Amino acid sequence: MPVYNKLVRDRIPEIIKSTGSQCSFKILNYEEYIHSLKQKGFEELNEYINSETNEEAIEELADLLEIIHALAEYHGSSFEKVEDIRKSKLGKRGGFKEKFYLIEVE
């Protein structure tokens, strides 16, 4: 039986059981949860980096957004608040559309 030892989406145990397979899982405490969310973020970012098609890339970006939603909630905030901060920074410092690559500053 494969061993995963990783955070999975809420319905994964139910989906596994619906196929007739068995699985074991535990409910994480808050320290384990935040650690696992951070690990999951790296996992999904790596999958995005290694995506080969636009479809795969968008799928992985959606997974990253789900992690951002969960992390915002964990930190007592919301995705909307994160989005507000993103927009504020966009107004003050811009985004990344111009593709500037800073080499050095004297």
Rank of each mutant, 00 (worst) to 15 (best):
N5E: 11
N5L: 08
K6T: 00
K6M: 04
K6W: 01
L7N: 12
L7V: 13
V8L: 12
R9L: 07
R9I: 06
R9A: 05
R9N: 04
R9V: 03
R11Y: 12
R11A: 13
I12C: 00
I12G: 07
P13E: 07
P13I: 12
E14D: 15
E14R: 10
I16Y: 08
K17T: 06
K17I: 06
T19R: 09
T19F: 10
T19V: 00
G20D: 01
G20K: 01
S21D: 09
S21R: 13
Q22N: 07
Q22G: 05
C23F: 04
S24K: 11
S24F: 03
F25M: 00
K26W: 06
K26D: 00
K26R: 15
I27M: 08
I27R: 09
I27D: 05
L28H: 00
Y30N: 13
Y30H: 09
Y30R: 14
E31N: 14
E31W: 04
E31A: 10
Y33H: 15
Y33G: 02
I34A: 01
I34H: 07
S36L: 02
S36Q: 02
S36P: 05
L37Q: 06
L37W: 08
L37G: 06
K38S: 09
Q39V: 11
Q39R: 11
Q39N: 11
K40A: 14
G41V: 00
G41H: 10
F42S: 09
F42N: 08
F42Q: 10
E43L: 14
E43R: 12
E43K: 15
E43P: 07
E44F: 06
E44V: 07
L45I: 10
L45K: 09
E47Y: 12
E47W: 12
E47Q: 14
E47V: 13
E47D: 13
Y48W: 14
Y48T: 02
I49V: 14
N50W: 06
N50V: 08
N50C: 08
N50T: 10
S51L: 07
E52M: 11
E52Y: 07
T53F: 11
T53I: 11
T53H: 10
T53Q: 08
T53C: 07
N54Q: 13
N54M: 13
N54S: 12
N54V: 14
E55Y: 13
E55G: 02
E56F: 00
A57H: 05
A57R: 14
I58D: 05
E60K: 06
L61P: 04
L61T: 01
L61W: 05
A62R: 04
A62S: 09
A62Y: 02
A62G: 02
A62V: 02
D63P: 04
D63A: 07
D63R: 02
D63C: 01
D63Y: 02
D63F: 07
D63Q: 03
L64V: 15
L64W: 04
L64A: 03
L65T: 04
L65G: 10
L65D: 04
E66P: 01
I67N: 04
I68Q: 11
I68C: 15
I68K: 13
I68M: 13
I68A: 15
H69F: 11
H69D: 15
H69M: 06
H69G: 03
H69I: 14
A70S: 09
A70D: 01
A70Q: 00
L71A: 01
L71T: 11
L71F: 08
A72V: 06
A72P: 01
A72I: 01
E73S: 08
E73Q: 09
Y74M: 04
Y74T: 11
H75R: 10
H75W: 05
G76H: 06
G76W: 09
